[in-house]
Amino acid sequence: MATDAQLRDLEQRPQRYWNADGIPELVMGLVWIIWGVALLVGEALPPGRGQQGYWMVMPAILVLSGFGANWLIKRLKERLTYPRAGFVTYREPGRSARLLSAGVAILTAATLAFLIVTGRQGGTEQSAAPAIGLILSLAFLVAALRQRAPHYLALAGVALMLGLAFGALRLGWDAINWMLVLLGAAAALLGAWRLARFRRCNPPSVEHHP
């Protein structure tokens, strides 16, 4: 007789399957690198029309790359994962889940904007890197526990170490951009390693149906 826990485990398999191939970390890591480099370039541009124009289009680039990442993850899974380990169409999240996600995203963006504005005024920018490192680390920890994805613990450790290291280096706001680049590199490397391992363990299936 199956227990509640066993049934829950089976129902959560699709979510774990999403994380099994390393593609989400690989793509998100690349996106974070692009974001970090784009922000560093923006900070380095000399003041003037060029810089103003750059910062005008920057938010659109950040948002579009986020959507693009989702599209790329799905295409890569169709090409690399599904032919080897099976095809899955995930259930669309319900209305309440969508509202919750949107609420968390808006709250996070508002908190970051508030921290940046008050930080610039109050000169607390040196504490931004450790604070963001801690927040990211906690987010990875929650993801690791909720999605039963222990590899996220490695990223939690990297985020925390980077936050502390950049806090000690006292680079100001640039520290956050560098953190994005390095954390992105760590995520992309972890994803690439996991994808290679997944492909080794799951040879392509020729035909699977009776």
């Binding site: 089976l10 699709p14 099976g86 899955v88 169409t89 995930y90 259930r91």
Partner: peptide, 27 residues
């Protein structure tokens, strides 16, 4: 029960995925 619980978590899935996750034989 295993098959139904696995399918409950997805919109749809193919035979290969179900075969691997359920650990049943094809037949």
């Amino acid at each position: 029960l295993r098959i139904v619980a696995l399918l409950a978590g997805v919109e749809e899935a193919d035979f290969l995925w179900l075969l691997r996750e359920s650990a049943l034989t094809k037949g």
